[in-house]
Design a binder for these strands. Structure first.
Lengths: 138, 138
DNA sequence: CCTGAAAATATATCGCC
DNA sequence: GGCGATATATTTTCAGG
């Protein structure tokens, strides 16, 4: 299980995963080899990957949305979502719809195209993202 | 604008944001000072933050879901979502509902509690996440 | 599990192209 | 914009508690 120090390290890495062992150590009063050992253990169990959050608007990907799907052709839909480079997340969900995809694209037509592409085997419903609020601490 | 080298760097950082300048340089045939300069420019415009993706199941946060809200008390709802530590994302959306929150928690009761907490000013609908498919390349 | 020391790597700066 | 050289900083390894 994780102790308080592990959580402190994860919190620091969440804010900036490029912090050096030395810098993390300074902030939590621990030597850099000890930080390294802790992080290696976290990497085995808890850390999926160190990654980067990009500003999609700056990348000319200003259209964001969710697409809800109701389908019985699960494999077909999953394969489609894997192929479509604008779809960055896919969840199996409970309720009236059984899948939801997150879409990041340049033009509204690309978002609408997803419904057209899947119309033969899935009923879909587009939720455009009009705003994104930071609710996480840190 | 971003050129091909910038995209290569972002792709590498997306997979592992702790890569050293030296290692990135090796993979794209560029010197480490040049990689550093590029990354500093990316940090100004395109990179929001370097972060870490954690395995929530390992952290005893195995219940994942979305909550759709229909409300006229936007400020009230936003403040509630900021206070609730299980809510990690909040979007303004188009359609029948006007907000959607992403929730990561330990027990199903915590997910259901959100509907109860907001019932006086928002109508809500819970979509439990039953599975999460990796559709991103890399 | 942690620290401190020391060798091996990486970063940061800068002159030059 | 990028490269090579070099001074500074960090990482890595390991002996010792």
């Amino acid at each position: 299980m994780l102790d308080d120090v592990d959580h402190q390290i994860l919190d620091l890495l969440k804010r900036n995963s490029r912090l050096t062992y030395t810098e993390i150590g300074k902030q939590i009063n621990m030597s850099s080899p000890a930080v390294k050992t802790r992080m290696e253990r976290l990497e085995d169990y808890v850390i999926n990957r160190y990654t980067v959050e990009v500003n999609h608007n700056e990348l000319n990907k200003g259209i964001h949305g969710f697409v809800l799907f109701k389908t019985k052709s699960c494999e077909k839909l999953m394969n489609y979502c894997k192929e479509n480079k604008n779809i960055i997340d896919l969840w199996r969900i409970s309720g009236e719809y059984n899948y939801m995809a997150k879409v990041i694209c340049a033009k509204i037509e690309e978002l609408e195209q997803i419904s057209k592409d899947t119309t033969q085997y899935a009923f879909s419903n587009i939720l455009s993202i009009l705003g994104n609020y930071n609710v996480e601490e840190g």
